[in-house]
Each structure stands twice: as C-alpha cells, then as structure tokens.
Design a protein around this nucleic acid. Structure first.
Lengths: 138, 138
DNA sequence: ATTTTTGCTTGCAACTTACAAGCAAACAAA
DNA sequence: TTTGTTTGCTTGTAAGTTGCAAGCAAAAAT
C-alpha cells in the first residue's frame, strides 16, 4: 500500500489525508454503529462498495492503525475487524456527520441513535465509546 | 456539473456523498477558520490544490448550496465566497476533525483555536457560528 | 468427494486528478 | 492610452483511481 503523505500541518487536512474519501469512514461506521465487522458484511452494506476497493481500504486502515484483524473464533476463513483507540476517537466526528446528514437529508437512518444524540450528545458519544472499548477486551 | 447521487439513506453516507473527498472541506475550512474567501487565497493554501480541481469544487459547493459567490466590493474581477447556513452547520464536524487531527498529529495548527476547543468546545463552536452568521448580514 | 462460504486478486474500461500552459476581463501604472 | 498585472478561470495530457466482472484458493459444510 502506498504511504499517505501529509499535505500540510493543518489538523483538518491531516484528518482528510487519511479519511477524505467516500469509503473509509463507511467501513469504520459499519463496525462502530452497525456492529458489522466482517468483509462480507462490509460488501453488502447499502452503499455497495466494490470488492477491490474494500480490500484496498481495509489494508490502508489496518496499516495506519485504525483497525485490527483477527481470525473469527468459529471459522478460520473468516475475520473480525475491530476498532483501535485511534478509530474509537472518531466517534464524535462520525456522530457529527450523522447529525449534519440527518438535518439536511431527514429523517436519516437509525432514529433511535438520532434521538439519543439529540437528547444527550455528549452522553451518547461516551456510552458508544465505552461500549466499543469493552468489546476490545474480549 | 454532474449531479451527486446518494448511495444510501444513511446520514453518514449522505455527508460523504457531498464532502467525502480531499478538497471540499478544505475550501470550507479556509472560509470558516482562516477567513480566506477568494479563489487566489484557496489556491495558495498550504495543501496546494490544482486550479482546475478548485474551480470544479467551487462549482459543486455553490450548486449544492454550501457557498455563495459575490463580486468583491472593491474589484469587479474578484469574488468573495461566503458560507450558507448549510455550511455553517458543518462547524461542529470540522472542529471534530481538528480535534482528532491534533490528537494524532500534534500539535496541529492554530494553538489558540485548539486551546479554546479544549477549554469549552460547545462555546467555541457556537461563537464561531455566530461570527460566521453575522458576517452574512454584511 | 463435492459444493459452498469467505476473503480476496486480476484485468480492463471509464473516470478523476495533477501539472502545465493558455486565456480573457478588469484594473493599475506609465 | 497603451502596456503590463491581477484575478479567475479553461484546456490538454499523462498518470492514477474507481467500478465492474471474472477468477481463485483456503476452509467449512454437505
């Protein structure tokens, strides 16, 4: 995989250097929000990512420390991807994307999560992060 | 400009449909944070966007209601771009990008803004949004 | 033993990007 | 007033990226 080069010192630009494309954050979303952590599940998400692009992005996300890949406990030809702390730290960013997206394209998916965010954003974010961190223990 | 198609109903995906690339949010950042609202200033930002890509993204951002273009009060061959409410609503998202970027690539630029965010995120965001809205009145 | 599941890799056409050069209206200076 | 400069683009082209379809191999299920 080609190394990612920083275009500048700006932190917004740095974030976009890694995550500024149409697919990387959707893979992270699948693990983070929809609890779908496998290649096959990423493939059949609504957005329909191409299989070569998926493989490429998984490689990039792993190489850059966003996700880790583990053999599934039940099947040796299946892998579970999980989020590292670096990706768990993206929860607030992804929640803001969900909030903006729901506002300008209502109602958006997952009304439960949206209601929870509207009622207590900070609390919802922290709860999700704690849940993801506890999943890492297992 | 080619119309943007939604890939799904997911609000995160919807946000990425418009803003999931390396450049669009940097243009918005230039207006939002660095108060640089002209073609020439976008061009010479640190990230060095190509001139055809810049023209293409400005067209897309205008067509989709993120920015408006007005002739500069002093020169008729110069234009000032300003943010619509739809883009001002991206302040929380861009601030989260800055926070994440600074954390994983410290210290990040603009320590004043970062300090302010660390001290009072909500207040910093609201103050910036109010400032941008008041600029629209002029 | 054969088929299915799972996670890829490969080939290729279409599209997008990056870089360089060119261009025209507005303005500024001589 | 004419000559040069600023400003905001457009065009051409090579290189890179994406999307689609097909193929492949290890592991699991039948």
């Amino acid at each position: 995989m080609k190394e990612i080069k920083s275009r500048s010192n700006c932190p917004v630009s740095y974030t976009l250097d890694f995550l500024g494309d149409k697919w990387s954050l959707l893979i992270i979303r699948d693990i983070m929000v929809y609890e779908k952590p496998t290649y096959g599940e990423f493939l059949c998400s609504d957005e329909k990512i191409a299989t070569n692009i998926l493989a490429n992005r998984l490689e990039m996300l792993e190489e850059n420390g966003f996700i880790t890949k583990k053999v599934s406990p039940d099947k040796k030809n299946k892998f579970n991807f999980s989020l590292t702390e670096k990706a768990i730290a993206l929860v607030p960013l992804i929640m803001e994307m969900a909030i903006w997206g729901s506002r300008f394209n209502p109602p958006g998916l997952d009304p439960e999560l949206m209601d929870s965010l509207n009622e207590d954003k900070e609390g919802t974010i922290i709860a999700l992060q704690e849940k993801l961190r506890s999943a890492l223990q297992k």
